[in-house]
Nucleic acid binder design. Structure first.
Lengths: 155, 155
DNA sequence: TTTTTATTTGACTTTTTTTGACCATTCTGC
DNA sequence: GCAGAATGGTCAAAAAAAGTCAAATAAAAA
């Protein structure tokens, strides 16, 4: 008998396959009810099976009417991109490094000139200095989010 | 099922779109009746979905025959863009407020969907939480930079 | 068997929405 | 002008989600 966590994982993945969608919206409470388990079990599944590095991205809303959405990132022919995400995860990035990194994305037409300028303006040194010593960690996290978003966008 | 607040928001926006007007006049009591809810629910919707920084302005009159009018603001030239920049300068912005603000820029085609997603991913709550106390100030600064860049790019 | 890792659970926290009791303003008929 | 009716506004409490974290179990590895 497989574990509860694995069964929930399968249930969600099957659901996406069946609907042929790369995104599903669910209610934590409902899902917990389907499997008669505590709601926090769902968080465990999300944390262990649907991480960014695993090719999924989760967004959620609390409060009345709250829910969460799991987005499958298309990484089949984007092996490199997935590796990049893992590389950037939990790391730090200086402004110079980020500049070089984004410059390469621009050269390779992964982003266009407007996107490049927007992103650069947001990871600006003076601006992020407000974050104190977390500056470089924050910049890396932001770049990681950019990569995930780029993956989400191209389909 | 979406929340009552979201349905009321949609109802009002659809109404404006349908009439192709950038302003509608409504009676709080009537609207509450349409959705069978307490009148103060309408105030909640106005406060969370139709704030100035979200591109709408609300004026109202109390007393017998009272009502309120929602006016949709538009960013049509540099002048208005510059006003936005000064409004954001030195301020703080929560994630939700930023979401509304950027949603408005998207609605008005000041930014496109890709830019919207990129910017949103970078001002993400969890990500900026690394900045601790400065989270909201940092977010406002980042958005200000975005606006300046858009102005320079001649959006 | 012992140690380590993975899963399950529940008490407590945070966020967002919904509701209602009480307050303020304006108009109308005297 | 004043009383009363007809509106809209405020604010705080309750309700409806989702998130966190650490303790308890279970499973796997050594």
């Amino acid at each position: 008998m497989s574990t509860l966590a694995s069964r929930i994982e399968r249930y969600i993945k099957d659901m996406m396959d069946a609907a042929d969608l790369n995104s599903v919206e669910l209610k934590r409470k409902d899902l917990a009810e389907v499997f008669s388990c505590v709601p926090s079990q769902i968080n465990y599944v999300l944390e262990t099976r649907f991480r960014d590095e695993q090719g999924y991205h989760v967004v959620s809303r609390r409060g009345a009417g709250g829910c969460f959405r799991i987005i499958r990132l298309e990484v089949t022919d984007d092996r490199e991109m997935k590796d990049l995400i893992s590389a950037v995860s939990g790391s730090e990035m200086s402004y110079r490094t980020a500049e070089g990194f984004l410059g390469r994305l621009l050269e390779e037409s992964v982003i266009d000139r407007g996107e490049y300028m927007l992103i650069m303006s947001m990871i600006d040194k003076d601006t992020l200095a407000a974050a104190g010593e977390s500056e470089d960690r924050l910049r890396a996290a932001m770049i990681k989010n950019v990569l995930i978003t780029l993956l989400r966008m191209d389909y």
